[in-house]
Structures are given as C-alpha cells and as structure tokens.
Simulated scan of single mutants.
Amino acid sequence: MFILVNLKAYPCDPLEVATAAHEVAEESGVRIAVAPQAADVRRVADTGVETWAQHVDPNGYGSHTGSTLAEAVAEAGADGTLINHSEKRLKLADIDGSVQAAARAGLETCVCANNPAQIGAVAALGPDSVAVEPPELIGGDDSVATADPDIVRDAVEAAANVDESVEVFCGAGISSGDDVDAAGDLGATGILLASGVAKADDPRAALEDLVEPL
C-alpha cells in the first residue's frame, strides 16, 4: 500500500511532516510520499522522503510564465506528481499533456478523477496510477472507502477494463488505519490524503496510525 500525503497550501511545517513520513516509512517498510507546495519540493526532498509535486503543467521549456515545469520539479528532487486534483482541474487534453510532460521528466504520475467513468477516461492516457476522490468527501470526516465503497470497487474495475497496469488509489476523507485497511480490501493499492496528516497536531502519530494495519 502506498500512502501519498498532499500538503496542499495548509499552514503546516512541510519539513516536520516530511521528516516524520521518512522515519515512519523507514521503520514500517511502507511506501510513504509527501507532496508539498512547489516552492518546498527541494527542501522536502532533502529530508530523504519520497517527494511528489502537487501539479505540473502540460508545457515544456519556453515562454510559459507562471507554469509549473515538470523538468523543474524533477530537478528539485520530485519523484512523481499529482495531476488533475479536484482543486486543480484540467481539461482532458491538458491532463494528457501533463502526463506526457511528467513522463519526459521521469516523474511518476497519479491522475485524480471524481468518479469511475472519469477514472476510465484518464486511465486511457497512460498514467502510472489514478485516484478516485469524490469532491463532496474531500477534507471531511467520512472516507470514500467506507462512505461509498462501491465507487472504489467500480473505479478499480473501470481502470482495469482500460489498462490493467494502472494502479488505483483511494482519496477523500482518509484519516485512519481502518480507512487504509478498507481501501485495500476494495482493491486500491494506495491512498491519497491531506488534512488527516497535514492538519494533525502530531503528524508522526497520524502516520503511525495509518500504517499500523499494514
């Protein structure tokens, strides 16, 4: 099971979370990554934790002021990137362009989508993984794995029908080891979460709880 912690733009200490994630990953043997703001990618990567960007744009080098260049975050130490998060929606053509840009830069990709139909559509673009995250559950107390388990099962099936090599992650409302366990039982191979760790009073304790059933 892969645990990907998205720090969004929360007022947390990215180095505290990254250090805790690195230590818990080393101690538990569970793969854990942290996705900080673009400005913090290099500092977070320097802690030794697996580091992801929150977004990359579909363009390459050139006159693209304000863009997040895949090559730039890779050079800063990122190993992968989220694409099309619910809070950073892209058109399908731009999702495709961002997946290709990430691939050129050697970044692993996880494309987010709202529902199984969208999961099937983005899986066809050839990302490494997809994450199903109903917007109404993001940041809430209810996990998609427990509040709407069918959407996870259907997302796994939708991705497999398109490309069996594309892994499916479970996002939205994940905050405990029980949520992680439930996601795995439904066929997810990873989880995508944010506030459960980034807003925790003790990020290390939150991470330890997440990996406990693994």
Results as ranks from 00 to 15, higher is better:
Ser63Cys: 03
Gly190Val: 07
Val180Phe: 04
Asp179Arg: 06
Lys91Leu: 10
Trp52Ser: 11
Ala183Phe: 07
Ala158Lys: 14
Gly29Ala: 02
Asp150Val: 14
Asp209Gly: 03
Val168Tyr: 13
His55Lys: 05
Asn59Ile: 14
Gly184Tyr: 14
Ile174Arg: 05
Ile32Lys: 00
Val166Gln: 06
Asp141Ala: 03
Val99Phe: 02
Ala93Leu: 12
Glu212Thr: 04
Arg204Ser: 04
Ala102Gln: 09
Leu214Cys: 12
Glu136Cys: 08
Val122Lys: 11
Ser86Pro: 08
Val130Trp: 06
Ala18Glu: 01
Ala38Lys: 10
Val166Lys: 03
Glu208Asn: 00
Ile138Ala: 13
His22Arg: 06
Thr47Trp: 00
Asn161Cys: 14
Phe169Val: 02
Ala206His: 04
Cys112Tyr: 09
Ala102Lys: 09
Tyr61Asn: 15
Ala159Ile: 07
Ser63Tyr: 05
Asp141Asn: 05
Arg104Glu: 14
Ala147Met: 08
Leu186Glu: 06
Gly29Ser: 01
Ala183Met: 10
Asp128Leu: 03
Gly187Val: 13
Pro135Ile: 10
Val180Ala: 08
Gly140Asp: 04
Leu214Val: 07
Val56Met: 12
Ser98Cys: 10
Leu186Met: 10
Leu125Asn: 01
Gly187Asn: 13
Leu69Tyr: 15
Gly48Cys: 00
Ala131Ile: 09
Gln118Gly: 15
Asp150Pro: 13
Ser63Gln: 10
Ala113Ile: 01
Val73Ala: 06
Asp94Cys: 03
Asp96Thr: 09
Ile95Lys: 02
Glu157Ser: 15
Val130Ser: 04
Ala18Leu: 04
Glu87Asn: 12
Gly120Leu: 10
Val122Ala: 11
Gln37Ile: 07
Asp46Ser: 11
Val132Lys: 10
Ile3Trp: 02
Gln37Met: 12
Glu16Thr: 14
Gln100Tyr: 08
Tyr61Glu: 15
Leu7Ala: 05
Asp150Asn: 14
Cys170Gln: 09
Ala20Ile: 00
Leu210Thr: 00
Ala194Leu: 06
Ser143Gln: 11
Asn115Phe: 11
His22Val: 00
Asp148Ala: 15
Thr146Trp: 06
Ala74Asn: 03
Glu208Leu: 01
Pro149Glu: 12
Thr189His: 15
Glu26Ala: 10
Leu192Trp: 01
Asn59Ser: 15
Ala72Ser: 12
Leu107Glu: 02
Pro127Ser: 05
Gly139Glu: 11
Val162Tyr: 08
Glu87Arg: 11
Phe2Ser: 13
Ala25Arg: 00
Gln100Arg: 14
Leu207Gly: 00
Ala103Cys: 09
Gly177Ser: 00
Gly62Cys: 13
Glu208Gly: 01
Asn84Trp: 05
Thr68Asn: 04
Asp202Ser: 10
Gln37Trp: 12
Asn161Phe: 12
Ser129Val: 07
